[in-house]
Simulated assay, not measured.
Amino acid sequence: MEVKEAQKAEIGIKKSNREAVVKMLRQLLADEFLLYTKTRNAHWNVEGIDFHTKHVFFEEEYGKLETFIDEVAERIRMLGFYSPGTLKEFLELSNLDENKPDQTDSASFMTVLLKDHDKVIKFIRESIGDNAEAHNDEGTADFITGILQAHEQMAWMLRASLKQFD
């Protein structure tokens, strides 16, 4: 999928390096959007004895993801390119599956979401060094490190919540 430049950004990073970073950010944006959608689905459809607490929990989580979506899209624009913004683009760019659990209990939703958070964590961790070293973009490396830490915390909360189901 073509990465379309919005404006020339003279920020000390070669265009080819900015394009490489933006390619990674586009996938991250798509992953964040899919994870956000799946978390919203959990919020809307969770059932069971823990309904209220998990309904509130999922709402807090999709709120965090909504912030990441906006920040990643704006980072792409800061680097001089257009952000993807259609569901079709997100589905093509994402490394996550558009799936949902067979059941509507909190553990089933959390299991699916945890797997996605873990995928996002691994992708970001693999990308940090390339952004800083290979592409001369320490700003994006620092930016995604913050997102990595937030996903690690979200995954920890899911993992701890699932402990009773092991």
Rank of each mutant, 00 (worst) to 15 (best):
L29K: 02
L29M: 10
L29Y: 04
A30L: 05
D31I: 03
D31G: 07
D31Y: 03
E32D: 03
E32V: 15
E32C: 11
E32G: 01
F33K: 14
F33W: 13
L34W: 07
L35G: 02
L35Q: 09
Y36M: 08
Y36S: 05
Y36G: 00
T37G: 07
T37W: 11
T37L: 11
T37M: 12
T37C: 13
K38Y: 02
T39G: 09
T39C: 13
R40H: 10
R40S: 09
N41K: 08
N41L: 07
N41Q: 02
N41T: 12
A42W: 02
H43Y: 03
H43P: 03
H43V: 05
W44F: 06
W44R: 06
N45S: 09
N45E: 08
N45V: 04
N45K: 07
V46H: 04
E47G: 07
I49C: 06
I49P: 15
I49R: 14
I49H: 14
I49L: 14
D50L: 15
D50T: 14
F51L: 10
F51D: 01
H52Q: 07
H52P: 01
H52I: 05
T53I: 12
T53A: 15
T53F: 11
K54I: 14
K54M: 15
K54V: 06
H55F: 03
H55G: 04
H55K: 08
H55T: 07
V56L: 10
V56I: 12
F57H: 11
F57E: 14
F57T: 05
F58T: 04
F58A: 09
F58L: 09
E59C: 03
E59S: 11
E59R: 08
E60G: 13
E60W: 10
E60C: 05
E61M: 11
E61T: 10
E61V: 14
E61N: 04
Y62K: 02
Y62R: 01
Y62S: 05
Y62Q: 07
K64S: 00
L65D: 00
L65V: 08
